[in-house]
Every structure is written in structure tokens, then in C-alpha cells.
Amino acid sequence: MTNQYTWVSWNRHKKAYDLVLAGACIGFLAIFVGLGFLASGPDAPDPMVMLIRATGTLSVVLLHVILCIGPLARLSPRWLPLLYNRRHLGVTMFLFGLAHAGLVILYYHGFGITNPLVSPLVNTNRSGIGFEMYGLAALAILFVMAATSHDFWLHTLTPRLWKTLHMLVYAAYGLLVLHVAFGAMQSELHIAYPTLLGIGIAIVSTLHLVAGLKETGRDRSALEANGTWVDVGEIGEIAEDRAKVVCVKGDERVAVFKHGGKLSAVSNVCEHQMGPLGEGKIVDGCITCPWHGYQYRPEDGCSPPPFTEKIATYELRIENGRVLLNPEAKPRGTRIEPAPVPSEPEASSG
């Protein structure tokens, strides 16, 4: 589905999402600064210091939200719209982190005798730790992620390398936690700071753990094979124009779609950005990736002309009302005749 690049692929939903995101960020900054001044009274810090704290906090909060979206979407499809627009959230988070770093360099390092770019590297807090180094390292990772968020990079770097690069978000998260722990929490000794950070870490960790356990359980049940064929489940479990995803051979996932009274199985991984095809639906006779709308025909895994993307297909058979899958993937783009769904009495009688 290699079309001409645009600068941002906006649609009505993405525009609404971005407007809500912009409003939420502005609201957060206004409330943070306003409450900060109200709570501090006559001892209120310099407005620039307040803005530095507000942008840094907003960046950390946004990173927590970003990290929660993935596992939430795996636990419930109602979170999928947030997942599909996560890219803009990531770039926004980086921009606020960059603003935070820029203001810090300007305000705390811009007027000394040391070069303002050198000063953060030699600066240490009272515990002797250069906490700004952690923040700069996290910012460098987040820069690479934000700068490579366009589809061009996905194509240029290849989906596998792109995905690996973007998994560095967890390293950035760890560095940011250290940055906050050895930075803001050393100067602000109120119990609220470690408590809020601890709650954030606990939420992110728990959601990842619960989503992982749920998927592991689902995969294990699917791997209870019938001979060499994998038991996908009952026909009725698959809704019309939707899919059920099963795990075969390690972490390979297969999406079994029902369309027009027939079943087809394809790789769950979209060629474009490794999006989860099984969470999408069939639109105009084509499996449509929920992330960016890339389409594939269910019977052969090929994108409709003039597009050239192809994904692997799998054989299916139906026995006793249950769907069985041959876990051996056929070469990408191989046509496999869809398995007709038997009528109700036939399916139940087996």
C-alpha cells in the first residue's frame, strides 16, 4: 500500500483526538502552574521554574499514559482508538520533554561561566549524582523515536528494526524514573512526589503483567493441538467480518477471519507497521489493519491492486463445529480457498 507520503495522515477521528490532546495538555499546564502558585502563596517560585516543573511533569505523565495504552488495548478493545493514535501522543510527549530541557538549560545553565551545553554534564545534585544525564539520555531516545515516527522511517528502517528501536521507550522510561528520583525528589521532599511516582510505576507494571498473563493463558489453550493442527475454537466464537487470533509456534500469531459464510486464516502481522490485523475488521471484502488501514484479501493475503503488500496465509478445516488451523505458514500471497462455514445443524451434529 505504498502511496505517496503526506506530512500527517489526518482524518476526522485523528483531528478530534489531537484537539482533545492539545486541550488536555494546555489544561494540565494551566492547572499545574495555577495550583502551584496558590499552594506556594508568598513563597511562590519564579514563573520560569514553575513552567520547567510543569513541562517536565506533563512529559512524565504522558509517558505513563503511552505505556498504559498498549496493555489496556490488549485487555479490552474499547481502548483501541487510543492505541491507533498513539504516535501523536508520543511526539507531543517528546516536545514537552524538549521544552523542559530547553528551559532548564536556559534558566539554570545559561548565565554561568561554563558553556550552557557543558554545564548539565558536569552538574551534580547534593547527593553527587548528575541526574540531568539521565534526563538527557532519555531525551535522546525519545528524540530518535519521535523523529522516526513517520511512515517513511518504517519503510526505510524496515518494520522489524523500527519496532526494535521503538521498544527503547522502556529504557527511556527507566531513565526518566531515575531522573525524577535523583532530581526533583531530592529538592522537593514532600511525600506526594515519591507516592505519585510509585503509583505510576505500579500501574504501568501491573497492566503489563496482567495483559501478558492473559495472552499467555490464551496462547496456551490455543496450542492444545489436535494432531498437528491447532484448535482455534468454535465457529461461533468468530463474529462476521471479525477475527479470532491464535498463537502458533512460539510467538507467531494467526488471525482467523469470518467473511461471507467462509473462514480464512492469515498472519496477524500487518506488513506496514506490524499492526495487529486480527483486531481489525473486513471492509469492502478486505482485512483492514486497525492501525493505518492497510488492506489484504482474506483468501490470498495480497493487498488489492495497485498495492503490492503480501502476508502469509494458513490452511483451515472445520471438524465437529470447531475450527482447526495448520500452523505451517504458506508463502506470502499464497491463495487458499476459504473454508465454508457449515449450516447450523451440520455444524452441531459434526
Binding site: 505504498t2 505517496q4 507520503y5 528524540f143 530518535v144 523523529a147 522516526t148 513517520h150 517513511f152 526505510t156
Partner: peptide, 30 residues
């Protein structure tokens, strides 16, 4: 050069080029 390396970049708007510029600076060896 991008127009020769990636066919989908031919005729792409200036906004696209500005968006990929920071990444090209950061990943210039690649």
C-alpha cells in the same frame, strides 16, 4: 536524494520533507 531512494517520496509535499529532516540529521550514518 530521497526521491530516488523511495518512490513514495516523489512529489511529496514540503511538510513531509520537514518532518523527516530531524530523523535524517540524527540518523545520518544510516
Amino acid at each position: 536524494v530521497v526521491n530516488r531512494v523511495d518512490g513514495a517520496a516523489r512529489g511529496a509535499p514540503i511538510g513531509f520533507r520537514v518532518l523527516i529532516l530531524p530523523g535524517c540529521v540524527g540518523l545520518w550514518p544510516f
